[in-house]
Each structure stands twice: as structure tokens, then as C-alpha cells.
Design a protein around this nucleic acid. Sequence first.
DNA 1: GTTTAGATCAACT
DNA 2: GTTGATCTAAACG
Length: 189
Amino acid sequence: MVQEPNVCAQARALLGAVIYGYDGAIARITEVEAYDGPNDPASHAFTRTPRSALMYGPPNRLYVYRIHGHHCANVVTSAAGLGSAVLLRAGQILDGYDAARARRGDVPEQLLGRGPGNLAKSLGITMADLGTDLLVPPGIVVDRSPTLAGDERIATGPRVGVRLAADRPWRYWIADHPTVSAYRRHPRA
DNA sequence: GTTTAGATCAACT
DNA sequence: GTTGATCTAAACG
């Protein structure tokens, strides 16, 4: 059994936070996954390269990667060069629907930010945002001050689509929230 | 050796 | 029909 690393608490703390994207698109984070750098085979930071060094640097930076033609956004959380980061898997769009739909297409509101690729697309996040300071405009900004509502609970389970370390329950989401995507295990996990 | 673009297909809607 | 911390190979330096 692997003990829960600090990044898991960081991940849970990001639920309910608000992320400001481009052209007025704003989302409330509803689903996240924790990645524990060198101790986590599923993390891109598991192998240290100049690219992954970003996750070993100062926290509150944006780490972006491509997958299947989409972009996925992560918040670097390590405070002491631990290489940990939190993947933003889903969010509820709060404002800027026109901008989000211009990028995502005419889909129902709750599907705009459902899934990491879709959330990044709604907000307009691309590789150009790699390394952005999330506390300082311009660019993508995250406001951690909003919290969960009194009747909202945090659910947990295995991370979606990871082949390695597929059983670590480091995915967190707001229970019963309509924007949260379904669990899919990697075929070869 | 690293990074990025493009693509596959099992699972989900 | 859609999606994606996979996978391969081309594009860097």
C-alpha cells in the first residue's frame, strides 16, 4: 500500500477553485487527479527531463501536455521540488459560454468542460501556456479561494486511463456533479 | 536524447 | 459519435 502523498491533499483543495481562461471563459474545477512525480510511474515527472523539470520548479505554474490531438492542463503543486502536479480533469463553465462554445462547438453546458481535453479547449489552453504563472495575469489564472458548498462531498477513485499505477485512488471529484466524467480503466493496465 | 504532432481503439454517451 | 497521463515516429537541437 502506497501512503497518500501531500499532492493528494493539494488536489482535493483545488476542487471548487475557479480557473480563468481566454476570452472570458471561466470554470469551476469539479474533478482532478494527483500525480506524485518521481514516486509515481504514471506521472510525466517520473522521468526527469528538461521538460518535466517544470514540475520540480516553483508551484502554481501550468504544465500542459498533448494527447490525441487535445491539450491537458496541470497545476504544479510541489512546494519543495517534489515534482508533483494536479491534472484538471473537469470543470463547470461559469461564464464565457460564447468563447467556450466557439472552441468546443454547440454542446450542452455540462459537457463543455467534461474531460481534461474538453476543459482545456473550452478555456483556450494550448502549449503556448506551458509554464504560465497561475497567480499572475495575463494568461490563465487560478483562484483557490472559492470553496465547496456545504452539501458538496468529495468522492475518490482510481485515475482515468492510466496504464501504470492504475490502482492508486488519486482521482478526486465533487460527488454527483454532472460535469464529472466516467471512470475508464486503461485496457492494458 | 527530448519534445511535439498524429494517430488507434476500447470504453463511454 | 466522442474521448484520451497511450503509443509511434517525425522533428528538433
